[in-house]
Amino acid sequence: MVVFLVRRTALFAASLFAASVLIFLLLQLLSGDMAQVIAGVQATPAQVASLRHELGTDRPLAVQYATWVGGVLAGDFGTSALSGVSVSAELGEKLTVTAPLVAVAMLLSVLVAVPLGVLAAIAHRRRLGVVISVGSQLGIALPTLWVGLVLAIVFAVWLRWLPAQGFPTAGWEQPVRAVRSLVLPAVTLALAEGAVLLRFVRSATLGVLNQDFLRTARATGLTRTGALLRHGLRNAALPVVSILGLQVAALLVGAVVVEAVFALPGVGQMLLTDVGNRDLVKVQGEVLLLTGAVLTIGFLVDVAHRLIDPRLRVSR
């Protein structure tokens, strides 16, 4: 286990370094720059040039990269030249919206997808199984944007149960309002992700149902469902845990759309705005931190795998 952890940590660090180079270079491909955005359409070219010099965007790329990574290694993710706010502070503030949104969406999708997915597998080729299957296909096919719009119209505009958009101006200091404003977005996000997850749970369970060890278990007198619950689910859990790790990344991407539909001041909205303003110092820092989060989850998933599956612990 120690060897595994050391090797896995080295891989983690190498991935993060590669990501930092990729993020930096890809963002340089964007046309347009922040100096132009700040100066607008009435400033003189000389004003734009002096702004560029002040922002440091006229320096060689290698120097800009080294400055950035040097700062990151010292724990400083930089400061936006536009707002004057530090990247980590603003990301932390936005995460108070996006983290609960993604966490609740994740929880909802697991709570719905796992039992329904197992049920769909057990009821495979029966009416119930088909209904769940078709429902999940529909959930995958519907665009998140559309689902969000419909939910907002039904539950906010018609029924007036929940707010249609926004987040309370005082944030979590108004906990009831904050929770209420996250309900519809979380459900929207969970529907899309839950449908995908359900398909994976169903196929993983189906895969296990045909295994020899389940036939053996049934030969000892267990029912099909009993054998599945006792011996099968642990095996089916392996691919599902891997998928869950990937789902977090997918949820963050989905959050960009959902936050736009519900006008939530979260990470997705912030990234869109910062890219629009060509606030590259901010975008780099934010994307690197998010990449780090996803890589960390990948790390945890691998560790979880070894805990769930004793065979992995022996073989390496």
Binding site: A152, A164, A260
Partner: peptide, 20 residues
Amino acid sequence: VVLHYIPDTTAANNAQLTGE
């Protein structure tokens, strides 16, 4: 005065219709 910056037109319409 609270100025709500809502770029999406549908979200803005919903906000106005619901009195937000």
